[in-house]
Design a protein around this nucleic acid. Sequence first.
RNA 1: GGCGGUGUGGCCGAGUGGCUAGGCAAGGGACUGCAAAUCCCUGCACCCCGGUUCAAUUCCGGGCGCCGCCUCCA
Length: 485
Amino acid sequence: MSLALYNTLTRRKEPFEPIEPGHVRMYVCGPTVYDEPHLGHARAAIAFDVIRRTLEALGMRVTYVRNVTDVDDKIIARAAEGGRSPWEVAEENTRAYDDAMRALGVRPPTLAPRATGHISDMLRLIGVLVERGFAYTAGGDVYFSVERSGGYGRLSNRTLEEMRAGERVEPDARKRHPMDFALWKAAKPGELSWPSEWGEGRPGWHIECSAMSMKYLGETFDIHGGGLDLIFPHHENEVAQSTGATGSGFARFWLHNGFVTVNREKMAKSLKNFVTVREMLGAWPAPALRYLLVSAHYRSPIDFSPEAVEDAAGAWRRLAGFARNAGAALASAGAAVPGAAPALGALLPGARIGTSGTEGGEWRERFAAALEDDVGCPEAIAVLFDLVASANRMIERAESRASELAAALGAFRDLAAVLGLDPGAWDAPRRGGSLAPAVELLLRVREEARAARDFARADEIRSALADSGIVVEDRPGGPRWYLAG
RNA sequence: GGCGGUGUGGCCGAGUGGCUAGGCAAGGGACUGCAAAUCCCUGCACCCCGGUUCAAUUCCGGGCGCCGCCUCCA
């Protein structure tokens, strides 16, 4: 089997092959940094993080570009409210975004270009569009002419007539067609601006993605992604601009992630029903959040609620518990414990899910097949749980060979890593070890109490540790402890 | 109104023309000083109405509900 992806452009699943064999070029619309990231941003970033890891795990090299929109009306407005500069606002929120994504195990893209660093590229592109007759000036503004663009509306599957029928905004008198959109906006006095042959101004929103994607990935590249809400007008306009300027095709596959909803409604600033990543991380373990956002197919909505996160946390505990138990079982059998998958954030292929012939080949094959079908994470997760149940039975039954369990754990780590859910990778950073001597002393005291059948004292110690986030399990071979979460 | 998506057991969430994923929660059992973790067992789901078929949750037609987009939006 080979990889198939759902392409918004054709509204079908299509076999995917990169233009350059073995090398995928992918561009995803990143955040507009006017506020701190909410769960919706996390969902998008994680969706494409998993897509990227999947491509890599299937043996492809991925050049992944995700932009930062750091010039925009909302940033300017936010700056004005706080009496700060737009630069400051953008900088602060870019940092908040990066921190949040790192905490959720989202690997940094290959490149994260900022709009303000590419003004000259945008001006050049606008110049070409004006030259070729796809754009016109009106005052200090430059507009793109949708009527000049062949096939405008193809991506969002609607015609210009249909769009006009649904018009909700008063047409701007300076536009030739109501759907024409700004490539360059004349600066208002005192506003952030750059010089151009059309006067002082700043770029429209859509042109930055055309300029930056083509600069780093070429005129035609493999995958362009973003949230479902960007299909129209943002991506439609990108297509129009880019194909207008180059005369050749733009992105071949368009991938769009579904929303995070609250009470089945889109999470959005305007509805005031959003939850920031920071708030979430304060209340729940990061891997539980990541699990929640990976557990649904990337195109489906995920309805957020405290119960949903609680369920995800439970599922995550089962996965993490398995890695712990299997590791301990192997160690006590004197067998080698498979190493953790590459650390989070490492610019390395997410995993080695190589198929038949390898240890744990059957699970690897099923897992790969799930992801090859339009990145079917729910199915892939089901394989992971099947593996866990099966390997737990090996642990339970003493007659199982250590080599078999080691293969299962190795496969588990490799496969979970494709989803960014390898427990080893999450545990490593916080295994400071500074707690260990104190905890182990308490556990020795507790063992003495248990030996003396002073269970009140033993339970007291256990619950005191629990209050500090340390879970104690009494095993046949003695107590074991770990950090909760 | 146009376009797109979606409707599965208490909840989340795959999938399939008959052999009916997975997780969480729940109940019972094993293990344990008690727990925890783990294992075993249990619950007979597919919006409605027609049609095709030996057989439909799965295919076709119609209807209804919900969600999204229609120049803020991941």
